[in-house]
Design a binder for these strands. Sequence first.
DNA 1: GAGTGGTCTAGACCACTTC
DNA 2: AAGTGGTCTAGACCACTCC
Lengths: 243, 243
Amino acid sequence: MSALAGDNRLPRYQRLADALRARIVDRSWKPGDRIPSENVIAEQFGVAPGTARQALAALVDEGLLERQHGRGTFVRRPSFDQSLFRFFRFSGAAGERLIPESRILRRSVDVMPSEVARQLGVSEGSEGIAMDRLRLIDGAPILAEQIWLPLPRFQPFLAIDPADIGPLLYPIYDASCEQTVARAEESLTAEAADATLARLLRVARGTPLIVIDRLARDYAGDALEWRRSRGPAERFRYRTEIR
Amino acid sequence: MSALAGDNRLPRYQRLADALRARIVDRSWKPGDRIPSENVIAEQFGVAPGTARQALAALVDEGLLERQHGRGTFVRRPSFDQSLFRFFRFSGAAGERLIPESRILRRSVDVMPSEVARQLGVSEGSEGIAMDRLRLIDGAPILAEQIWLPLPRFQPFLAIDPADIGPLLYPIYDASCEQTVARAEESLTAEAADATLARLLRVARGTPLIVIDRLARDYAGDALEWRRSRGPAERFRYRTEIR
DNA sequence: GAGTGGTCTAGACCACTTC
DNA sequence: AAGTGGTCTAGACCACTCC
């Protein structure tokens, strides 16, 4: 039986949640793993089952765990490479989801722009991997992306042949560099297409483009990837509910 | 002691939550009201206090209730007239929130466009109140709004002198028409400014504008107001976190 | 049938607000 | 001091999944 660490003025279920979260952060429990049942956890930490439930519920709320009736509690596998669907309409005729194909136009190692370095939390002048990607549906370009990855953390990624890189990057980061994207912050605005983007996206110069900046982080909160995506506003619609 | 209505196969806390929600929908409990304590509710409905807690927690989650330690449980007062802050940066030099002033350019009664009627859930050809508003900070226009309200529901609103209408409309709907906005659906895209909007917002023709459509509903889910707001994308930034 | 999470009970004690 | 919600306990029974 482990003791419950941390400030004992905090509620037990919170300290327990912290202890469980730590196991996810340090990868002793990996995405997809089943974790011990609530009774086992309760016994291990010396709390009542109800208190363990409360801790687990908090982590479900945070999006770290998933519970499945009769099967167990699992570390959630974050897979929001498709999160573009929250923004753009790529549905086919039947309304089904399509994953746009991906064409890597350029990959190189360069000194990062200072704003990118700042957001990735590395020192000014650091080197990183730069990529330009184009995403297409039925051969028609719909999104232009710039991506920066910090070095040396993503060194192994350079060994991968660009031809082997499919549309989903995060599973590749996970497999090749042991870097798991757990969450991301996105910010959104619009701008007029300049000459380069107009040519790339095959729209007229000045066409309104939606610009989505994304900073992806791992469970520990370290920034893993900086990304800027631009696509024609016409294809774009974002819905949200407020209360 | 009231009986718990509804399908017996549903969990008690859900049927209890439905019963409590109904009291908010039918305005026996109004926004700002304190509702009975969990012990009283538990006794009234013949459930254990823990079950009542679970029902109350569900309604807090839905955004209908607010609990305050030591004070009680209250019907949440939805006040998202300021929800524009989620989208536009209006902060002053000190970063404080400013409520933009409001100028009503036009108010009239007209047949609603069929798309507006459809979204408001009234029959094609119905009449409604149309308003054009301009919102400004320090005299500079930042947002152009079109608003439609269904008739006869909002008949009393016509009696109000436009000069008496401040920047916040929802409290006025509440006071004059007993219509409470409980939640809203927003959808967002961008377009280029046409001649009219360019003149109104004092930007060049073709400048990218953010377009926000909002459909506001009451607790019962009836649509109360249709609104389309446009502002220069330059002043716009929307942030969100995804997991 | 064994193990899991989901619902429900019936209390106890604590922290906070109000009077 | 009284009343409120917040935490915590120690069980019970049920529904679901898997073997």
